[in-house]
Computed example of a mutant assay.
Amino acid sequence: MLDLATTQALARQLQTARRTRTPLRQFSRQYPQMTLEDGYAIQREWVKLEQAAGRTIRGRKIGLTSRAMQLSSQITEPDYAPLMDDMFYASGGDIPMGDFIAPRVEVELAFILGRELRGPHVTIFEVLAATEYVTPAIEIIDARIEQFDRDTRAPRKVFDTISDFAANAGIVLGGRPVKPDAVDLRWVGAMLFKNGVIEETGLAAGVLGHPATGVAWLANKIAPYDEHLRAGDVVLAGSFTRPTPAAAGDTFSADYGPLGTVAFRFV
């Protein structure tokens, strides 16, 4: 375990990296003894810094929800991170490329909670009952910690990703909100277009069999830290497409069929 002074110092580095858009070397190279708990400890210290700077938490994200991603990261469960208020962008508008280092785009569903969920024994049925509505979303992920080391090209470890807000950097909500019992959420599908060309397609069942499963997991996972999901929280349930790289000038559109479209342009 890393000591408090070290986790606080690394959190300050991440805050600076996000502000200056300057990527950091992988923490796991400097501290090969890092654990999952160290990653979350750094993440919590970074949240404190953001809150001290006036930012607020609007919800949470769940990542690494697919079996393939868990195998590649050598873990057996998803990860999570906060959604800060300055990470939200409007659908249909322009998003400054200068807000990011190396952005990539993923397709997800967002759960907007009507009442709180407090673990440790939350079930998928309680998630659905507590959800005010579900809406299409696009997550913009980024790398304040280098995805691949600049010299060795070694990929970052999951401890690095967790430290780095689980790679979260932006959220775009849109489309048509629906009640959680209005559709079979497992069969919600989307086509992701980049500059008019289909890059990815997927079904929400790719997220742990049902996208609400991850929300229940999250409520239970954070309970030991005396944390819970609050009424009004936005919870990104996990991507059901692979990340798609973005560059200035790229236009993205995620077509969710009956649930509408989320679209924006990087400028």
Rank of each mutant, 00 (worst) to 15 (best):
M1G: 10
L2D: 04
T7I: 14
Q8E: 14
Q8T: 08
A11G: 07
R12M: 07
A17H: 03
R18Y: 14
R21V: 13
T22E: 13
P23R: 08
L24C: 01
L24W: 02
L24F: 04
F27W: 03
S28T: 14
Q30R: 15
Q33M: 11
L36K: 02
D38I: 04
G39C: 08
Y40C: 10
I42H: 06
E45R: 12
E45H: 15
L49G: 10
Q51I: 14
T56L: 01
T56R: 13
R58H: 12
R58P: 00
R58D: 10
G59A: 01
R60H: 14
R60K: 08
R60N: 08
R60Q: 12
K61V: 10
K61Y: 00
I62F: 08
I62Y: 04
A68N: 01
L71T: 15
S73M: 14
T76H: 04
E77P: 00
E77G: 04
D79Q: 11
Y80C: 15
Y80S: 15
L83G: 09
D85H: 10
M87N: 04
F88M: 04
S91M: 07
G92A: 09
M97D: 00
D99P: 00
I101S: 10
A102M: 02
P103V: 04
V107Q: 08
L109M: 12
L109A: 10
F111I: 03
L113P: 08
G114P: 09
R118M: 13
G119M: 07
T123D: 10
F125T: 13
V127C: 06
A130P: 13
A137H: 08
I138S: 00
E139C: 02
I141S: 00
V158A: 13
V158L: 09
T161M: 07
I162Y: 08
D164R: 06
N168L: 12
A169D: 03
G170F: 12
I171G: 00
I171T: 13
V172C: 02
V172G: 05
G174E: 03
R176Y: 01
V178N: 09
V178C: 11
K179W: 06
A182Y: 02
A190E: 00
V197N: 00
E199A: 15
E199P: 00
A204T: 13
G206F: 13
V207T: 11
G209N: 11
G209F: 14
A212G: 11
T213S: 15
A219V: 03
K221W: 08
Y225P: 03
D226N: 13
D226I: 05
L229C: 05
R230H: 06
R230I: 01
D233H: 14
V235M: 07
T241I: 05
T244Y: 06
T251V: 02
F252D: 07
D255C: 06
G260D: 10
T261N: 13
